[in-house]
Structure formats: C-alpha cells, structure tokens
Design a protein around this nucleic acid. Structure first.
Length: 115
DNA sequence: ATGATGACCCAAT
DNA sequence: GATTGGGCCATCA
C-alpha cells in the first residue's frame, strides 16, 4: 500500500494490525487478547488489544468480530458492573457453535485459534 | 505536565 | 483452585 507516513495516533482506532488479526479469526473459533497482541506484532501488550476493541463501541461488527476475543482464562471479559448487554458476546459465540461450561468458560484447548 | 483506569497476562504464593 | 503483586502502555480527568 504505497506507504503510510507514520500516521501519528492523533485519533482512536490506531491499531489496524489488531483489527486485521481479529478479522482473521474463523467463525466458531476464539482467540485470547494475548494471542491477538502477539499475532499483531505487539507481544505483551494484551491490554492495548482490549482497548482497541473497546474503541469499536460494540456495534454490529461483521467486519471485526470482537466477540471472538476472550481472555486467557477462556472467560468473557467485560467492564466492571457488566449488565445484560454483556450477554451478547456469549450468545454470539454460542450461535457460532462455541459451547460454554457451567462456569461460563470456553474450552480453549478446543476452540482456540490458531490451533 | 502528572495520576488513575482499563474488554489483560503471568509468575509466585 | 483462589489471591497477590508486577508489568504493559493508550486514554481520560
């Protein structure tokens, strides 16, 4: 792409690499924040991944399936005082065939991507 | 400019 | 298994 002259982060969503990786997660699979960070070339910066995803404002993103990103425990992470809106992520994953155990956790050995 | 927060992670206890 | 403490760095007040 003909060079992008440094593009200083003068505005949010300055993580094209992160969105690119998330976009690459196949349907019915999940990835952890740490994985996305590493795959995006930001090893150890898992927090920035979460921040970047939050910048999406959870719209109906088919372009960036944010719901396929979960934490390293296999659980869904959300802001404190999570309400009913947070259940959306679980429902979206279940709709893709991802199962949750009684504790609300996903079996990462089975659904983690890449394999 | 500093200080506190945060869709996190990991090792040690 | 649960808790504690350190690390990472962009964004907000």
């Amino acid at each position: 792409m003909t060079s992008s002259p440094s593009t200083p982060s003068t505005r949010p969503s300055a993580y094209p690499a992160i969105y690119e990786v998330v976009r690459r997660i196949p349907r019915g699979r999940v990835a952890t924040y740490g994985q996305v960070a590493t795959l995006a070339g930001l090893p150890g910066r898992a927090r920035q991944v979460g921040y970047a995803l939050h910048a999406l404002r959870h719209p109906q993103d088919d372009a960036v399936p944010w719901h396929r990103v979960i934490n390293a425990r296999g659980e869904i992470s959300h802001r404190a005082g999570a309400g009913l809106e947070d259940h959306a992520q679980r429902q979206l994953l279940e709709a893709e065939g991802v199962t949750f155990d009684t504790r609300g956790r996903v079996d990462l050995d089975r659904y983690r991507w890449p394999r």
